[in-house]
Every structure is written in structure tokens, then in C-alpha cells.
Write a protein that binds this DNA or RNA. Structure first.
Length: 277
DNA sequence: ATTAATCCCTGGAGGC
DNA sequence: TGCCTCCAGGGATTAA
């Protein structure tokens, strides 16, 4: 499940492979992947467009074309595969194919079909609703402790779902939110407003640190897929809570337990992460 | 306004 | 072996 570190890893891989490539044609095999504009417009607008850059905002990839921005969200299982010279074969999960003028291709594969793409005029990706509503990137130069604490103070919502909705800070998904809460020693169901200053400070630092370390490791690989960009990450060996059910907490050796919080599987240490509020 | 539930999707795992 | 149910979950949408 790509979260910020995995999307960043995909971005770097894609940039290296497709920068400078020009689109000859686009095939769409599962129309719902294209959120807007209409499929025919999406395809027609991309012809003769050159990829100048591949950027990222939160978990969204942004392909910078000559005259358009293409926003792509991988959701759960979306991935890009690059085929340098017409060697690879499509499978039933290949939903969009970008054919380049040099006869290389980029496949968008997505088992669950949750991923979405949007094409907007050049430099207007920041106006796209899904991106416009995002909170800051999890870096200290744009994500401020005081603002974070003020917002937490004003919400009665449980801390985990609050961190998942991308408005306070963007980039956390189910894996890294469990990791950040473990690191900060906070119970995932704690009402945000019940956290004291010491806890919110630890949480702020944990969010920044966990995501930075995961980016450094190239993300987390839960399942491996051959030839899939961004699937070579090694952060899975550093997980302390996520997916560690019944294994000893690395800090206190109490078995990690798993519960449901806001419909999400949630892993935490019942000793280190005491419930409060 | 905020917060919770529902939906989109498929494959893999486990029960019987 | 085969059929069934459950589970994985990001974010848009709908409901309360």
C-alpha cells in the first residue's frame, strides 16, 4: 500500500526512466481509472506531450507534461511498469498504457482498480481538489509544531483517523501511522484533544522521523512484484508495530496486539501505548 | 461544521 | 477440491 515513502520511491524511479519521453498514444482499458476529463479528451490531450518532470505531493504523483499536469494516485495497489522495447506483455491488471514515440511503453497496473488519474492544464495540479485540501509535507520547513498542536487541541476525534485524513499533515497511511504512534508511545484511539504537550511534541517528531527514515530505505515492501517500480524498499525490517501482531514489542517485549480503529487494522503495544482520555 | 459509515475492487487465506 | 466468508484499505461520497 503505497504511502509517502513508497510514492517517493516510485517517483524517483519513474523520473529516471521516462523523463524526456513523448507520448504517441494512450490506451485505456478500465475507464474508471480516468477520473477526468472524458477518456477521449484525456487521450487526445496527451498525444505529442513530453514528460518534463515527475513530482509528488503527499501520496499523489504529478507528471509534468509540456502543456498538462497528470495527477496519479496509486491508492492500494497501483503500480507503474516500464517496458523499454515492446518486450513485456500486458496482463489483466494493466489498465492504462502510455505508448512513447521511441517505442518504449509505460503500463499502469492495478489489481484492485482503486487508483485514479486526472489531467489538468499545466501547473494547475495544486488547484485539484484532492491536492488543494492536503496538509503540509512532513518536513520541519513546512510542517510546524505549534500549528499541529493547535489543531490537535481543537479535535475530539481519535488520533489515528485524524492523522490518516491528510489534512493535518500529508503522507501517512496505515503502516506509518501505526509506526509513528508506537514511536511516540500514544494509544491510537486517544482523542486528539486529550494529548498533552509532551505527547504532541513526541508525535510531531515521530511523524517526521518515521517518514524520513522510510524514504531513506526506499519504502516498505510487503509483497514483492518483479519489475515493479518502487517495490524494492527495505523498511519492512524496521517495522516495530505494523504487522507485528503477537510479536514482542521491541521496547518492552509485551506482545503487540491488533484491534480495529475506524475500520482499519491497528497494531500497538498495550504496555507502551496506554489508553487515555 | 465535524464525524462516521459506505463504496469501489480483487485475490488470498481460512473454515468446513 | 470447492464453495463460502472475511480481510486488506485510501479517499470520495453520502449520511447523520
Amino acid at each position: 500500500m503505497p504511502e509517502l515513502p513508497e510514492v517517493e520511491t516510485v517517483r524517483k524511479g519513474l523520473l529516471h526512466l521516462v523523463k524526456g519521453k513523448t507520448i504517441e498514444s494512450v490506451e485505456v482499458r478500465w475507464p474508471r481509472i480516468i477520473e477526468s476529463p472524458e477518456i477521449e479528451t484525456f487521450q487526445r490531450n496527451l498525444v505529442n506531450q513530453t514528460i518534463e518532470d515527475v513530482q509528488r505531493r503527499g501520496k499523489f504523483l504529478i507528471f509534468k507534461f509540456t502543456n498538462f499536469d497528470m495527477i496519479s494516485h496509486l491508492r492500494m495497489e497501483g503500480k507503474y511498469d516500464f517496458d523499454p522495447n515492446m518486450q513485456d506483455t500486458l496482463d489483466k491488471h494493466t489498465h492504462v498504457i502510455f505508448n512513447f514515440t521511441d517505442h518504449s511503453r509505460l503500463f499502469y497496473n492495478d489489481v484492485r482498480k482503486f487508483g485514479r488519474m486526472v489531467l489538468v492544464p499545466k501547473d494547475e495540479s495544486s488547484q485539484y481538489k484532492g491536492i488543494k485540501q492536503l496538509g503540509p509535507e512532513p518536513q520541519p520547513d513546512v510542517f510546524y509544531l505549534e500549528t499541529f498542536q493547535e489543531k490537535l487541541k481543537r479535535s475530539a476525534k481519535a488520533i489515528k483517523p485524524l492523522l490518516l485524513d491528510q489534512k493535518l499533515v500529508t503522507g501517512l497511511g496505515n503502516i506509518y501511522v501505526d509506526e509513528a504512534l508506537w514511536e511516540a508511545q500514544i494509544h491510537p484511539e486517544t482523542p486528539a484533544s486529550a494529548l498533552n504537550e509532551s505527547e504532541t511534541t513526541r508525535l510531531y517528531q515521530a511523524i517526521i522521523d518515521v517518514l524520513a527514515r522510510a524514504v531513506e530505505a526506499g519504502g516498505t515492501t510487503i509483497r514483492s512484484y518483479a519489475n515493479a517500480l518502487g517495490e524494492a524498499g527495505t523498511f519492512q525490517v524496521s517495522l516495530n508495530a505494523y504487522g507485528q501482531t503477537d510479536l514482542p514489542c521491541p521496547r518492552c517485549h509485551t506482545p503487540i496486539i491488533k484491534i480495529k480503529v475506524a475500520q482499519r487494522g491497528t497494531h500497538y503495544c498495550p504496555t507502551c501505548q496506554k489508553r487515555k482520555g
